[in-house]
Each structure stands twice: as C-alpha cells, then as structure tokens.
Amino acid sequence: MNIFRLAGDVCHLVAIIILLLKIWRSRSCAGISGKSQVLFAIVFTTRYLDLFTVFISPYNTIMKVVFLALSYATVYLIYMRFRNTFNSENDSFRLEFLLVPVIGLSFLENYAFTPLEILWTFSIFLESVAIMPQLFMITKTGEAESITTHYLFFLGLYRALYIANWVWRYHTEGFFDQIAVVSGVVQTIFYIDFFYLYVTKVLRGRGKMTLP
C-alpha cells in the first residue's frame, strides 16, 4: 500500500458518498445517470467475487464490502426509492455499445482463461467506460448540478491517483499490471475534458456547470 493508492481509494469513497448523500438529501436523482450507477455496481460485483476466496488485508475486505453496499444503495435510491425523479429519457446511452466490446475484449485479453479472471478483466474494462452514460447525459442536457460535478471530480482524482500509484509501484517493487494500467489510462482520459470544464466553470463559482 502506498499513499497514492490510499488517497485514490479515499477519493473514490468520497465520490460515492457525495453522490449518495446528494440523492438522499435532495430526495431526487435529477441529472444523474442511473445507467452509470448500474454499471459501477456491476463493476464492483464482478471484481469483488474474490471476496470469499482470497483474503488480502482487513482494509481490502472492508473497502470491498463498503463499495458494494454503497453502490447498490445508490442504484436502489435511483431506481426504487426516488424513481419518480429519475429522468430516464435523458439517460439514453445504449449500454450494449459498452457491454458487447467489453465482454468480447475480456475474453480475448486476460491473464488466465478462468471464470474469476475473466470476470475481473471484464470489471476492469467496464470501469473504464462506466462513466460514459453520465458524461453523455451532461453533454445532452448541457448542464450538471455542481454536486454532480464534485462527484465526477473526485472520481477523476481517484483515477489520476491510481496512475501515480502504478508509477510508484513500478519503480519501488517492479509491479506492472498491464490490463489495469491500460484500462485505467483510458478511463482517466475521459475525465481530462471534464476536469477542464470543472476548473473553468464550476470553480469560478458558477454553481451550475453549463457546457458551451
């Protein structure tokens, strides 16, 4: 464990909590892509199947349970509790455009052709595109509430810190997880455009982020 990975995991946790609290306190999920949240729940489910077979550390196990619980709670709030505030017509990204290539690729490129390994690879590739429906919704509606942008900011920060973590681990322990690194770089690239908008629009106190 290194500071970059720990900070990254904390940012990830903060992002999930920001979103969950925003939905719970505003009792609304307007402007939030339910599809992205479903994809994240699938990412955690397919990645953390080793929860029962491999024990890494108390931290690892606890964080996996927390991420699973919070992501399912978020999906529950969107599709059950506050479903009347969910504008599904704006959440129109075709998930099959993501799932088909990701499933195909995880069968082609993986470390071992075993169910657990293929599901882990699937979760890595899926996570890199899971935010697309949310970013698509923002470009479609042309705006995002500032809380949603804070959520995206921390999510992007988590990915950037993970890249720093991989650089650190490569230089200190020669660790290099090719699938995770390639997928993580692709995922981080999606946030770069958003980071620019976040800094120029939201941090200038505009409250809402409106796209040009």
Binding site: R5, D9, V54, N60, K64, Y111, A112, N165
Partner: peptide, 10 residues
C-alpha cells in the same frame, strides 16, 4: 504476460 495470481488493488 504479467500474469496476476491475486489482485490486491480495489
């Protein structure tokens, strides 16, 4: 191919 026996990252 850099096989990973166990994935220790979240």
């Amino acid at each position: 191919d850099g096989g990973e026996d166990e994935h220790d990252e979240l």
